[in-house]
Simulated scan of single mutants.
Amino acid sequence: MRIDYAINKVAQTHRGQSEDQVAQAIHDQLRALGVVPNGRQVAQYATAISALPQLPPNNK
């Protein structure tokens, strides 16, 4: 559950950015939640999130 939470949080804030930035954000989020990141999985998630289009700004 913690991994899903961290990935979803990063996907909302870092989508469309470089893979390195996304991977670092995932790593930081997982570490903050007490999870030891698996490098291969982080790389896969980072590739997928960086390929997503950026969300438009929420100006409500």
Score class of each variant (00 low, 15 high):
residue 50 S to E: 15
residue 9 K to W: 08
residue 3 I to W: 05
residue 18 S to L: 02
residue 48 A to Q: 14
residue 54 Q to N: 07
residue 51 A to E: 12
residue 25 A to L: 01
residue 15 R to G: 02
residue 59 N to I: 10
residue 6 A to I: 01
residue 10 V to R: 00
residue 37 P to K: 08
residue 26 I to V: 07
residue 13 T to K: 13
residue 54 Q to M: 12
residue 14 H to M: 12
residue 52 L to A: 15
residue 6 A to K: 04
residue 28 D to E: 14
residue 38 N to K: 15
residue 7 I to D: 03
residue 36 V to K: 07
residue 7 I to W: 03
residue 59 N to V: 14
residue 7 I to S: 05
residue 36 V to R: 15
residue 3 I to A: 12
residue 47 T to G: 08
residue 49 I to Q: 00
residue 50 S to D: 03
residue 35 V to I: 15
residue 25 A to Y: 01
residue 43 A to L: 05
residue 55 L to Y: 12
residue 43 A to E: 11
residue 44 Q to K: 06
residue 52 L to M: 15
residue 1 M to K: 09
residue 10 V to T: 07
residue 48 A to V: 10
residue 48 A to E: 09
residue 30 L to K: 01
residue 55 L to H: 13
residue 50 S to P: 03
residue 24 Q to S: 10
residue 23 A to K: 05
residue 53 P to F: 05
residue 32 A to Y: 10
residue 2 R to E: 13
residue 25 A to T: 04
residue 49 I to G: 00
residue 29 Q to G: 00
residue 57 P to A: 15
residue 48 A to R: 10
residue 14 H to P: 00
residue 55 L to W: 09
residue 12 Q to A: 15
residue 60 K to D: 15
residue 13 T to I: 04
residue 32 A to S: 07
residue 44 Q to D: 13
residue 1 M to L: 05
residue 29 Q to Y: 08
residue 43 A to I: 02
residue 26 I to R: 00
residue 32 A to Q: 11
residue 15 R to H: 12
residue 29 Q to H: 09
residue 1 M to G: 15
residue 42 V to E: 09
residue 2 R to A: 14
residue 15 R to T: 10
residue 15 R to P: 01
residue 19 E to V: 14
residue 57 P to I: 06
residue 24 Q to I: 08
residue 2 R to F: 12
residue 23 A to L: 01
residue 25 A to E: 01
residue 53 P to C: 03
residue 55 L to F: 07
residue 52 L to S: 04
residue 32 A to V: 02
residue 58 N to F: 10
residue 33 L to V: 12
residue 3 I to L: 08
residue 2 R to Q: 07
residue 57 P to S: 10
residue 51 A to D: 07
residue 49 I to A: 03
residue 60 K to I: 04
residue 8 N to A: 08
residue 20 D to F: 13
residue 24 Q to P: 03
residue 56 P to M: 05
residue 46 A to L: 02
residue 43 A to M: 05
residue 1 M to F: 08
residue 54 Q to V: 08
residue 14 H to G: 04
residue 31 R to Y: 11
residue 18 S to T: 14
residue 29 Q to I: 01
residue 52 L to R: 09
residue 4 D to A: 13
residue 4 D to M: 14
residue 42 V to Q: 04
residue 36 V to A: 12
